[in-house]
C-alpha cells in the first residue's frame, strides 16, 4: 500500500530532487509551487502526506503557515511534513505549531525522507536532531526544568528529555528504544507527546524562548 504525497516547493530543482529521492512505496500525486496552487492541489488530490517547504511565495507572505491555516479542518487524514533549508528557530517552531507533524532539513537522504513520510502518514511525529535541539532549548531542559506531572504542557518529563537528547545525538527511533530499553512504539508515543506539547504549550513565544534559554 503506497503512500500518496503532494510536494510543495517553489524551486523546480528541489521538487524534482525530492520526487526522485522518494522510494517506490511512495506515490507523488501532485506538485505545487506557491501558496495558492498548494491549497488547490491539496484540496483536490487529498494526499496522505504533504511535503511542505517553509518559505513559499504567495498568500499573505507567511509561506507554509498560510497553507496550513487554509487546509486545517478541510482535509481529513492529510498530514504535513515540513521541509526546509532554514535553521531558524522561528521557522521550525512556528510551522510545527501550525500543525505540521514533523520537520526535516533538505540535506536529508532519500531513504530517510521516505521513512519520514511513512512515519508521518502513520500518524507519528518526525523529529530531526535539530528540531530535538530546539525543543530542549525551548522547554528549558538545559536549565534543569523537568515536568513532574505527565500532562504538564510547559515542560518535558525526564523521559521525554532523554528521548529528545538521544534524537539530538543522531539516534534513530529504533536505536533510542534499544538504548533506553523501551519499545519503538513507546519512543513514538514520547515523541508524539513532545510534538503535542510543542503545539499546545502556553509558552507563546517558544522560538524566542529557545534563543533566550540558550544562556545557562
Amino acid at each position: 500500500m503506497s503512500v500518496t504525497v503532494v510536494i510543495v516547493d517553489d524551486h523546480d530543482v528541489i521538487r524534482v530532487g525530492v520526487r526522485e529521492s522518494l522510494d517506490d512505496q511512495i506515490e507523488v500525486v501532485g506538485e505545487a509551487r506557491d501558496v495558492e496552487s498548494a491549497i488547490a492541489e491539496i484540496l483536490d488530490k487529498r494526499p496522505e502526506v504533504v511535503i511542505l517547504d517553509v518559505h513559499l511565495p504567495g498568500g499573505t507572505g507567511a509561506g507554509a503557515l498560510d497553507v496550513l491555516a487554509e487546509i486545517k479542518g478541510r482535509v481529513e487524514g492529510t498530514r504535513t511534513l515540513a521541509l526546509s533549508v532554514s535553521d531558524s528557530a522561528e521557522d521550525v517552531v512556528s510551522v510545527i505549531r501550525a500543525g505540521a507533524r514533523g520537520y526535516v532539513t533538505k540535506s536529508i537522504s532519500g531513504p530517510e525522507l521516505s521513512d519520514a513520510v511513512r512515519r508521518v502518514a502513520g500518524g507519528d511525529a518526525v523529529f530531526s536532531p535539530r528540531l530535538a535541539g530546539f525543543v530542549l532549548d525551548a522547554f528549558g531542559a538545559a536549565g534543569g526544568e523537568v515536568a513532574i506531572e505527565d500532562d504538564e504542557l510547559d515542560q518535558l518529563t525526564a523521559r521525554e528529555q532523554e528521548v529528545m537528547r538521544l534524537i539530538a545525538r543522531g539516534y534513530t527511533y529504533r536505536e533510542v528504544g534499544e538504548k533506553l530499553f523501551i519499545s519503538i512504539k513507546t519512543v513514538e508515543t514520547h515523541v508524539g507527546k513532545v510534538l503535542h506539547k510543542l503545539q499546545l504549550s502556553n509558552r507563546h513565544e517558544l522560538a524566542h524562548w529557545a534563543a533566550q534559554r540558550r544562556i545557562v
Binding site: 536532531p129 538545559a142 536549565g143 534543569g144 543522531g170 545557562v216
Partner: peptide, 19 residues
C-alpha cells in the same frame, strides 16, 4: 557518515557526543 555532534551545556556540565 553521517556524523553527528551534539553539545549540551547545562548548569552543571558541558556534555558532547560525537557519533
Amino acid at each position: 557518515g553521517p556524523i553527528s555532534v551534539y553539545a549540551e551545556l547545562t548548569a552543571d556540565a558541558f556534555e558532547v557526543f560525537v557519533r
